[in-house]
Protein backbone atom coordinates (compact mmCIF):
# COMPACT_ATOMS: atom_id res chain seq x y z
CA UNK A 1 0.00 0.00 0.00
CA UNK A 2 1.22 3.51 -0.91
CA UNK A 3 0.39 6.00 1.81
CA UNK A 4 0.85 9.74 2.25
CA UNK A 5 0.66 10.94 5.87
CA UNK A 6 0.20 14.56 6.93
CA UNK A 7 0.49 16.12 10.39
CA UNK A 8 0.05 19.87 10.93
CA UNK A 9 -1.78 19.66 14.26
CA UNK A 10 1.00 21.42 16.21
CA UNK A 11 4.15 23.40 15.39
CA UNK A 12 5.59 20.09 14.23
CA UNK A 13 5.12 19.77 10.48
CA UNK A 14 5.27 16.12 9.48
CA UNK A 15 4.92 14.38 6.13
CA UNK A 16 5.66 10.71 5.49
CA UNK A 17 5.37 8.37 2.52
CA UNK A 18 5.00 4.61 2.65
CA UNK A 19 5.60 2.64 -0.51
CA UNK A 20 4.32 -0.93 -0.65
CA UNK A 21 3.92 -0.77 3.11
CA UNK A 22 7.48 0.38 3.81
CA UNK A 23 8.36 3.77 5.21
CA UNK A 24 10.45 5.35 2.46
CA UNK A 25 10.50 8.98 3.52
CA UNK A 26 9.80 11.34 6.39
CA UNK A 27 9.90 15.12 6.49
CA UNK A 28 9.72 16.68 9.92
CA UNK A 29 10.39 20.15 11.31
CA UNK A 30 9.62 21.84 14.61
CA UNK A 31 9.48 25.54 13.78
CA UNK A 32 7.12 28.41 14.50
CA UNK A 33 6.47 28.88 10.80
CA UNK A 34 3.36 28.87 8.67
CA UNK A 35 2.04 25.39 7.82
CA UNK A 36 -0.23 26.74 5.09
CA UNK A 37 2.81 28.01 3.19
CA UNK A 38 5.11 25.04 3.86
CA UNK A 39 2.91 21.95 3.74
CA UNK A 40 2.45 21.58 -0.02
CA UNK A 41 6.11 22.22 -0.89
CA UNK A 42 7.03 19.56 1.70
CA UNK A 43 4.58 17.04 0.24
CA UNK A 44 5.77 17.70 -3.31
CA UNK A 45 9.46 17.49 -2.41
CA UNK A 46 9.06 14.21 -0.51
CA UNK A 47 6.85 12.57 -3.14
CA UNK A 48 9.32 13.55 -5.86
CA UNK A 49 12.25 12.26 -3.82
CA UNK A 50 10.65 8.83 -3.40
CA UNK A 51 9.45 8.75 -7.05
CA UNK A 52 5.78 8.58 -6.33
CA UNK A 53 3.10 10.47 -8.26
CA UNK A 54 -0.21 11.36 -6.54
CA UNK A 55 -2.21 9.00 -8.77
CA UNK A 56 -0.27 6.04 -7.35
CA UNK A 57 -1.36 6.72 -3.78
CA UNK A 58 -3.77 4.24 -2.19
CA UNK A 59 -4.60 6.15 0.96
CA UNK A 60 -4.08 9.46 2.74
CA UNK A 61 -3.62 9.55 6.49
CA UNK A 62 -3.92 12.72 8.53
CA UNK A 63 -3.55 13.76 12.12
CA UNK A 64 -7.16 14.75 12.86
CA UNK A 65 -6.54 16.60 16.15
CA UNK A 66 -6.78 17.61 18.87
CA UNK A 67 -4.35 20.50 18.58
CA UNK A 68 -4.20 23.92 16.96
CA UNK A 69 -7.61 24.49 15.33
CA UNK A 70 -6.11 26.22 12.31
CA UNK A 71 -3.24 23.77 12.06
CA UNK A 72 -5.51 20.74 12.15
CA UNK A 73 -7.76 22.28 9.49
CA UNK A 74 -4.84 22.88 7.12
CA UNK A 75 -3.87 19.20 7.30
CA UNK A 76 -7.42 17.86 7.18
CA UNK A 77 -8.46 20.10 4.27
CA UNK A 78 -5.39 19.13 2.28
CA UNK A 79 -5.83 15.43 3.07
CA UNK A 80 -9.54 15.15 2.40
CA UNK A 81 -9.45 17.23 -0.79
CA UNK A 82 -6.53 15.22 -2.16
CA UNK A 83 -8.31 11.99 -1.25
CA UNK A 84 -11.56 13.16 -2.84
CA UNK A 85 -9.89 14.25 -6.07
CA UNK A 86 -7.86 11.03 -6.32
CA UNK A 87 -10.86 8.87 -5.33
CA UNK A 88 -8.96 7.15 -2.53
CA UNK A 89 -9.80 6.89 1.18
CA UNK A 90 -8.72 9.32 3.87
CA UNK A 91 -8.05 8.02 7.37
CA UNK A 92 -7.77 10.13 10.51
CA UNK A 93 -5.60 9.31 13.51
CA UNK A 94 -5.72 11.13 16.84
CA UNK A 95 -2.71 13.41 17.27
CA UNK A 96 -2.36 11.98 20.79
CA UNK A 97 -2.39 8.39 19.53
CA UNK A 98 0.42 9.31 17.11
CA UNK A 99 2.53 10.76 19.92
CA UNK A 100 1.78 7.79 22.18
CA UNK A 101 3.55 5.50 19.67
CA UNK A 102 6.87 6.96 20.87
CA UNK A 103 6.28 5.27 24.25
CA UNK A 104 5.81 1.83 22.69
CA UNK A 105 8.73 0.30 24.57
CA UNK A 106 7.87 1.84 27.92
CA UNK A 107 6.78 -0.53 30.65
CA UNK A 108 3.82 1.32 32.15
CA UNK A 109 1.29 3.89 31.03
CA UNK A 110 1.81 6.48 28.31
CA UNK A 111 0.36 9.98 28.65
CA UNK A 112 0.83 12.14 25.54
CA UNK A 113 -0.44 15.71 26.00
CA UNK A 114 -0.81 19.00 24.15
CA UNK A 115 -1.04 22.32 25.97
CA UNK A 116 -4.53 23.82 25.59
CA UNK A 117 -3.89 27.08 27.55
CA UNK A 118 -5.23 28.21 30.93
CA UNK A 119 -3.73 25.20 32.68
CA UNK A 120 -5.57 22.78 30.45
CA UNK A 121 -4.23 20.01 28.25
CA UNK A 122 -5.54 17.71 25.57
CA UNK A 123 -4.54 14.29 26.73
CA UNK A 124 -5.43 10.62 26.87
CA UNK A 125 -3.95 7.49 28.45
CA UNK A 126 -2.36 4.67 26.50
CA UNK A 127 -0.52 1.45 27.28
CA UNK A 128 1.70 -0.79 25.19
CA UNK A 129 0.67 -4.43 25.06
CA UNK A 130 2.85 -6.83 23.06
CA UNK A 131 4.28 -3.87 21.19
CA UNK A 132 0.89 -2.45 20.26
CA UNK A 133 -0.16 0.85 21.80
CA UNK A 134 -3.71 0.70 23.08
CA UNK A 135 -5.99 3.31 24.57
CA UNK A 136 -6.74 3.13 28.30
CA UNK A 137 -8.55 6.45 28.84
CA UNK A 138 -10.11 8.41 26.00
CA UNK A 139 -8.77 11.66 24.55
CA UNK A 140 -10.10 14.67 26.43
CA UNK A 141 -9.47 18.23 27.50
CA UNK A 142 -8.78 18.57 31.23
CA UNK A 143 -7.00 20.79 33.78
CA UNK A 144 -3.52 19.30 33.77
CA UNK A 145 -3.15 19.16 37.57
CA UNK A 146 -6.44 17.31 37.82
CA UNK A 147 -5.17 14.81 35.24
CA UNK A 148 -1.87 14.37 37.07
CA UNK A 149 -3.74 13.65 40.30
CA UNK A 150 -5.64 10.91 38.48
CA UNK A 151 -2.36 9.48 37.15
CA UNK A 152 -0.88 9.48 40.66
CA UNK A 153 -3.47 6.87 41.65
CA UNK A 154 -2.56 4.52 38.79
CA UNK A 155 -0.78 1.24 39.52
CA UNK A 156 2.21 1.80 37.19
CA UNK A 157 4.60 4.62 36.26
CA UNK A 158 3.55 6.99 33.49
CA UNK A 159 5.66 8.14 30.55
CA UNK A 160 4.90 11.79 29.76
CA UNK A 161 5.24 12.87 26.11
CA UNK A 162 4.76 16.41 24.80
CA UNK A 163 6.40 19.20 22.83
CA UNK A 164 4.91 21.51 25.47
CA UNK A 165 6.86 19.80 28.27
CA UNK A 166 8.63 22.94 29.54
CA UNK A 167 5.36 24.53 30.59
CA UNK A 168 4.27 21.48 32.57
CA UNK A 169 7.54 20.04 33.90
CA UNK A 170 7.17 21.48 37.39
CA UNK A 171 3.62 20.22 37.90
CA UNK A 172 4.61 16.74 36.73
CA UNK A 173 7.50 16.58 39.18
CA UNK A 174 5.45 18.02 42.03
CA UNK A 175 2.44 15.75 41.62
CA UNK A 176 3.79 12.52 40.10
CA UNK A 177 7.28 12.52 41.60
CA UNK A 178 9.08 9.26 40.77
CA UNK A 179 6.02 7.93 39.03
CA UNK A 180 6.24 10.44 36.20
CA UNK A 181 8.86 9.67 33.57
CA UNK A 182 9.62 12.55 31.21
CA UNK A 183 10.48 11.35 27.73
CA UNK A 184 13.55 12.50 25.83
CA UNK A 185 13.12 15.44 23.43
CA UNK A 186 13.20 13.15 20.40
CA UNK A 187 10.38 11.02 21.79
CA UNK A 188 8.34 14.15 22.46
CA UNK A 189 8.02 14.84 18.73
CA UNK A 190 5.10 13.16 16.93
CA UNK A 191 6.57 11.16 14.04
CA UNK A 192 4.84 11.26 10.66
CA UNK A 193 6.13 7.74 9.97
CA UNK A 194 4.19 6.47 13.01
CA UNK A 195 1.12 8.35 11.77
CA UNK A 196 1.46 6.66 8.38
CA UNK A 197 1.81 3.19 9.92
CA UNK A 198 -1.10 3.55 12.37
CA UNK A 199 -3.27 5.01 9.61
CA UNK A 200 -2.32 2.26 7.19
CA UNK A 201 -3.51 -0.38 9.64
CA UNK A 202 -6.79 1.39 10.43
CA UNK A 203 -10.13 0.54 8.89
CA UNK A 204 -11.57 3.18 6.58
CA UNK A 205 -14.70 4.66 8.12
CA UNK A 206 -17.37 6.88 6.62
CA UNK A 207 -17.27 9.05 3.53
CA UNK A 208 -14.47 11.42 2.55
CA UNK A 209 -17.03 14.25 2.34
CA UNK A 210 -17.93 13.84 6.01
CA UNK A 211 -14.35 13.70 7.23
CA UNK A 212 -13.63 16.58 9.61
CA UNK A 213 -11.25 17.41 12.46
CA UNK A 214 -11.69 16.13 15.98
CA UNK A 215 -11.42 19.40 17.90
CA UNK A 216 -12.46 17.75 21.21
CA UNK A 217 -14.10 21.00 22.25
CA UNK A 218 -16.76 23.32 20.88
CA UNK A 219 -15.90 26.69 19.36
CA UNK A 220 -15.89 29.29 22.15
CA UNK A 221 -18.88 31.20 20.75
CA UNK A 222 -20.86 27.97 20.52
CA UNK A 223 -20.03 26.94 24.09
CA UNK A 224 -21.07 30.38 25.39
CA UNK A 225 -24.26 30.28 23.39
CA UNK A 226 -25.18 26.85 24.76
CA UNK A 227 -24.46 28.08 28.26
CA UNK A 228 -26.75 31.07 27.78
CA UNK A 229 -29.49 28.78 26.46
CA UNK A 230 -29.20 26.69 29.57
CA UNK A 231 -29.38 29.58 32.06
CA UNK A 232 -32.36 31.12 30.28
CA UNK A 233 -34.35 27.90 30.65
Amino acid sequence: MNVLAIDTSSYVLGVAVMKDGWLVGEYITYLKKNHSVRLMPAIRALMEEVDLTPNRLDRIVVSEGPGSYTGVRIGVTTAKTMAWSLKIPVVGVSSLEVLAQNGRHFNGYISPFIDARRGQVYTGLYESKNGIVQQVKEDQIIIHREWLNQLKEMDKPVCMLSIDMNKHNDDIHAILGEKGIIATVTDCMPRPGELARVGMEKKVEGETHDFSPNYIRLAEAEAKWMESQQTSK
Partner: peptide, 16 residues
Protein backbone atom coordinates in the same frame (compact mmCIF):
# COMPACT_ATOMS: atom_id res chain seq x y z
CA UNK B 1 -9.09 30.90 8.88
CA UNK B 2 -11.81 30.80 6.24
CA UNK B 3 -9.46 31.73 3.38
CA UNK B 4 -7.09 28.94 4.41
CA UNK B 5 -9.68 26.24 3.69
CA UNK B 6 -10.21 27.34 0.09
CA UNK B 7 -6.53 27.94 -0.50
CA UNK B 8 -5.45 24.56 0.86
CA UNK B 9 -8.24 22.70 -0.94
CA UNK B 10 -7.26 24.40 -4.20
CA UNK B 11 -3.59 23.55 -3.65
CA UNK B 12 -4.55 19.92 -2.93
CA UNK B 13 -6.40 19.67 -6.26
CA UNK B 14 -3.69 21.52 -8.19
CA UNK B 15 -1.05 19.10 -6.86
CA UNK B 16 -3.11 15.89 -7.14
Amino acid sequence: GALLIGVNAAKAIAFS
